[in-house]
Design a protein around this nucleic acid. Structure first.
Lengths: 236, 236
DNA sequence: GCAAAAGTGTTGACAATACACCCATGG
DNA sequence: CCATGGGTGTATTGTCAACACTTTTGC
């Protein structure tokens, strides 16, 4: 059996809700334009080769800090491994992928070759990176409904219509702010701060401000069916 | 920067419900006893190094077929990557892990160094493999409640009390056969075959036989909260 | 008949959507 | 005072656990 060299790379799909106050918010992914062959000019996920003294999570963090100068990742989790033998030409490269989330108003300085792109309108992507973005998006959509993962996308303090926009954009359909509030408050996911925001340009009642109770991923909607006998929700 | 060699291994936690008819069913994982140092005598998950011409899924399948002579995996899915630099001594080794499921009555021939072990009473395990088993188990538990993943653990035809035992063992708590039936039938996960089993040793009404409608993983209990407006469930 | 096991009917708790209605502010 | 957006109350629907009750068999 021939023993070929195998590289291991770590790639992260960093997602963010952009254009929040400017009318039409969109879900963005951070991409980086290749400056050399192969696939020159195509866009790829930030990342790079794993080093000998780091695990893949540390590697993902390091690459984001070094390559795109991004240090404020609110949430980072493993996605999947992409390992088709020919997914990258020449040298066999296995990719571990991550989902990273950045809160919305934060608009970090980025190097000139990296940009935010709408997830539903991607530019020509390098290798199998488009599949990875799709994977990241669907993971995020799934977790929006049964965890508190929204904390990683929202500002530290926000009003409910903002949160509604965030959820709507991520989920891809209209979300009712009224019910969103009730669901998240009952689950203890969000808490009122007590302060209120000034009303908008055209009047209207001032909105109460909220924040996420916790900034650590937690499952908030445990299995509905087949739960243990005598189950009482939430406890606490 | 020093460029050290990195190996990539693929490990699978194969789970099965054992001792089904003998009173006290248990969830088992397939383990393999190490015959050489390091960690001689400890038990490890089946697997081995990735080859140059296969992706990790193919590798997992191959290793199970070769090393433990197991070819009938009803379900196989990626778990997580374990990549701590020192998780294995000497040569840096990254592990991609899988969850594999085998239906219950099947009791394949196994090599003499491999055995089924109860998941809740593991022998001394090699390296970080114990964590991997825990990971596999919790993934399985989660998916039991919102997918049809049970198809991969149950016989092709079964009666409800058998299925209740399978669910109870995996979930770790008593499950009511009555409600289990209703939940799974409403979701279209299981179907009556029409035939009935003969009643047991001590009389009783003969049980209807069922089978899983599909033998491909499918999400059957879509998000309860934050579903799209006008959602009607199931359709068809 | 009688015990045992399987399966059905019913009830109560709870969660979530939908929608009508009230509240507070700016112009 | 009215338009605009925020927030609450409530009806309806649906899901599930719990449990009583009926059905069907072996002995």
């Amino acid at each position: 059996m021939v023993h070929t060299i195998t590289e291991h790379e770590v790639l992260t799909a960093v997602l963010r809700v952009g254009d929040l106050d400017s009318g039409r918010p969109r879900l963005h992914v951070l991409l980086w334009q290749r400056a050399r062959e192969p696939q020159l000019g195509r866009w790829s996920l930030p990342g790079g080769l794993l080093r000998g003294n780091e695990d893949i999570t540390a590697s993902a963090r390091r690459q984001l800090a070094e390559k795109v100068d991004l240090r404020e990742i609110a949430h980072l989790e493993q996605l999947a491994v992409f390992s088709a033998p020919d997914r990258v030409p020449d040298v066999r490269t296995i990719a571990s992928t991550f989902l990273g989330l950045v809160p919305s108003p934060a608009d970090p300085e980025l190097p000139s070759d990296t940009h935010w792109h709408p997830v539903d309108d991607l530019p020509p992507m390098a290798f199998d990176h488009e599949t990875m973005v799709a994977h990241a998006h669907s993971r995020l959509v799934a977790k929006m409904s049964y965890t508190n993962i929204g904390f990683a996308l929202a500002p530290t303090e926000f009003i409910l219509s903002t949160l509604r926009d965030i959820y709507s954009v991520v989920l891809g359909h209209q979300v009712d702010a009224t019910n969103l509030q009730r669901v998240l408050v009952r689950r203890g996911v969000i808490t009122r701060t007590g302060t209120t925001a000034r009303s908008g340009r055209s009047g209207g009642r001032p909105a109460a401000r909220y924040r996420f109770t916790e900034s650590q991923l937690r499952v908030t909607d445990e299995f509905a069916a087949l739960r243990p006998p005598g189950w009482v929700g939430l406890e606490s």
